Simulated scan of single mutants.
Amino acid sequence: MQLKPIAQQVVTVVGASSGIGRETALRFAQRGAKVVVAARGQTGLESLVNEIRTGGGDAVSIVADVADFNQVKAIADYTIATYGRLDTWVQVAATGVMAPFDQLTPEEFKRIIDVDLMGQVYGAMVALPHLKREGRGALIHISSMEGRRSMPLQSAYSSAKHGIEGFLESMRVELKHEGIPISVTSVKPAVINTPFYNHVRTKLGVKPTGIPPYYQPSLVADAILYTAEHPTRDFIVGDIGKILDVLQRLSPPLVDALLLLIAFPGQRTNEPKFESAEDNLFEPMPSDNRVEGDFGHLTIPSLSDWLMRHPTITAMLIGSILVTAAFLAIS
């Protein structure tokens, strides 16, 4: 399966006003792609388009709530109306509530499913016809390591991310059965330093946090741009995410025990924040359109991501290690 170089692509990024989506849109534009950005917040989109155009890039924006199918369809229609085609669709938009399950209301749980799962489904539904017409393209869905291993205090978010994984697996095989060369990628970030923890609703009495260490949003953008040119099934972002994936496969009870020790204190800061505070569950937060969040001091690099993006060098390194091991064994 051959995908176009990014400089020749028309890319739609849904959930682009802040965080991973904003960084990704900027990076696509810097690489020469024509970019359509969508989100609920008009202020964030306008500042993003201005930033892209100031840097010499080509971008337009459209306001949409991904929980509404017709609004998501409008994003695809606007992409085609503006640029005539679609090559890559990136679905990032997400929201959440940090709370024990028994403190969630039905409306809150449903809203998270509508945005975090159904928004992903709607995105694929509206993008696929255009990608099929082009005869190739990429669907890139931003899931989470919580699609492999659920976290306490995030039951609705974890449910949505598990749903994304099941949905993508089914769709991927259907496309292969039809012989349609469309790449379907699940990007699974570990804990990322975005404003997500400022935006979500909390019932913990304090500002929530992910369990450190964090990784910077640029690392996820690297993965997204890589998979836009190189068909990839899954891309786990962050060394810790890959370690968690292995542990979950080996022993879910062991991960249960680890989370009992670290997940409840580890997802709380000491900064008071109450349920009445502003959040983005039902309405956008136009005042916060940053790429990075408040936890830059807790971020670390990830060697495994670099290796995944450079498979030839990785294969050479593994080959050298095997040859060296064989030589030492013979000696």
Rank of each mutant, 00 (worst) to 15 (best):
R27T: 02
T88K: 03
V187T: 15
H141R: 00
D114Y: 03
A29G: 02
R172Y: 11
K203S: 10
T299Q: 08
G96C: 10
M151Y: 08
M125H: 07
R136Q: 04
S302G: 09
N50C: 12
V36N: 00
W89H: 00
V63P: 01
I62F: 04
T82M: 06
G123L: 04
R268Y: 09
V323T: 14
F167Y: 12
S170V: 12
M151H: 03
R249M: 15
K132Y: 05
L307E: 04
I112P: 06
L258R: 04
V206E: 02
E178P: 10
S276I: 03
L219K: 12
M1S: 07
Q248S: 12
I211Y: 14
A25Q: 05
L45E: 00
G241S: 10
A59R: 09
I180F: 14
G293D: 02
H199C: 08
I142W: 01
L139M: 01
L322Q: 13
L328K: 15
A76Q: 03
I224L: 14
D114W: 01
Q9E: 09
P100S: 06
V66Q: 00
T314W: 02
V126I: 11
P265A: 03
A74N: 08
V191H: 13
A64N: 02
R53N: 14
G179Y: 15
S158V: 07
V220G: 12
E292F: 05
A277L: 09
S183L: 13
S144F: 01
V49E: 01
D245W: 10
S331L: 14
Q42W: 02
P5A: 11
A329F: 15
S302K: 09
G266M: 09
K4G: 02
A160K: 13
L303C: 04
Q71K: 04
T299D: 05
G15S: 08
F264M: 12
P253E: 00
D305G: 14
H199Y: 11
I142V: 00
Y215P: 13
E174K: 01
M125L: 12
A263I: 12
I192V: 14
E165N: 12
G179C: 14
G293F: 08
G319S: 06
A190E: 13
I140W: 03
G19Y: 08
Q248H: 07
L3M: 03
D114T: 02
E174S: 11
H141I: 00
P311G: 05
P189D: 07
V13W: 03
A221F: 07
F264E: 14
Y226D: 12
V10I: 08
G119N: 05
A190R: 15
D239A: 12
L281R: 07
A124V: 13
D116T: 03
A326H: 15
E165C: 08
F282G: 06
Y78I: 10
A64P: 00
